[in-house]
Design a protein around this nucleic acid. Structure first.
Lengths: 198, 198
DNA sequence: GACCTTCTTGACCGGCCGGTCAAGCGCTTT
DNA sequence: AAAGCGCTTGACCGGCCGGTCAAGAAGGTC
């Protein structure tokens, strides 16, 4: 599909089904081993349908990644809206990130794959950048209020992201079936906050 | 190549060149986009050579990953051999891991790809398991001597691995050219040790 | 029911991919 | 010099892959 196309309600639904099914299969079998035919067969439509809704297989993955990053950011924004205190907002953001990772294990596998090919890594780098800047800004605000130790906010944001990502990877990669261990989540949150509080 | 084959000196060299060149290309372009023809052309040999030394393209990557994990473990073992004190051994191991990650950025990209397809993830899961057990044992020894706070050693080992991995990914993925920032390395090491010392 | 737009079909295409193999090269051994 | 083995070549193969497209069907609007 070239640029934005006018989709009917039915069209939008079809598009989302393709997106969702492709995400599942990519996460399960890998991006390259999943062919466009696999996807359309799975959804039960002809091949042309795929190319009606998406420009190419690559663009489909890029779209999945972009949407996931946007969704993560939206979720975080909603989570921190309640708290007014910067440090509390930081904690809420961290918890939201962790929850999101747990709910979106599929995506984590896709993200890891994405880093291995430049056209996807580019997208991921931008998404990562945004999250880091968001977090760094929160840290800066907290620092201005004297709530945390001083230090390079960006570096602190990187460290926090590191810990969160890794927790997500732990669940997504070693065994998709294990449930998130609340104790481990608490430890992670504490570790992040302790890291910035000094 | 079926099981172990008797290789001459020249044969071993050829094999290593193929291994090294393939690692580079896989890291740069990705596993699937790099064809066997790309590899043999790059090394300047006929295609049959590849299949004389390797069973398949998949087996080649598995071998690259296995060797990398083995190499990491060997490096760590050598690094901690000097120190007799468990806590010092732990620190030496952490530093060795970080150094290794910096020296082997290529491999980190391959590892991230590997998690996205089951036949490779299987290998990685085993490698990870070994490193975790090694680290947990060190932590246990330190705990027995009262050098660190008590807690689940495996969980602590996981946390340490998380931080190290993520530092490596930071360098390997965002910009292959940036040099490791010594301050960040120190921060990472301190964070790991502070995490277990309580 | 005529007409238009959105959507769907599936046969088809060129090209590449992983992998094979018959043939032969060149170094050692006898 | 003959035989044997490790190694190399590159044309070739079947199959699949991403992507195209001419031909409609389905649904909305007047």
């Amino acid at each position: 599909m070239a640029e934005e196309r006018q989709l009917t309600r039915r069209g939008q639904e079809r598009r989302e089904r393709l997106l969702a099914y492709a995400t599942e299969r990519f996460a399960e079998k890998g991006y390259h081993p999943t062919s466009v035919s696999d996807i359309v067969d799975g959804v039960g439509v002809g091949k042309g349908v795929f190319y009606w809704y998406f420009e190419s297989k690559d663009q489909l993955l890029i779209e999945i990644l972009r949407e996931a990053l946007r969704d993560l950011r939206t979720t975080q924004a909603a989570a921190i809206a309640d708290a007014s205190d910067p440090l509390q907002r930081l904690e809420a953001g961290i918890r939201a990130s962790i929850d999101w990772s747990v709910e979106n294990r599929n995506i984590i596998r896709l993200v890891m794959f994405g880093w291995s090919e430049e056209q996807f890594a580019e997208v991921l780098r931008k998404g990562r950048e945004i999250v880091i800047v968001d977090t760094a800004r929160l840290i800066e605000q907290a620092a201005d209020l004297g709530q945390i130790m001083s230090g390079n906010p960006t570096m602190m944001a990187l460290a926090i992201r590191a810990v969160i990502d890794q927790l997500g990877q732990e669940y997504a990669l070693t065994d998709g079936s294990i449930e998130p261990d609340p104790e481990m989540v608490e430890t992670t949150v504490r570790m992040c906050l302790r890291g910035v509080r000094g």
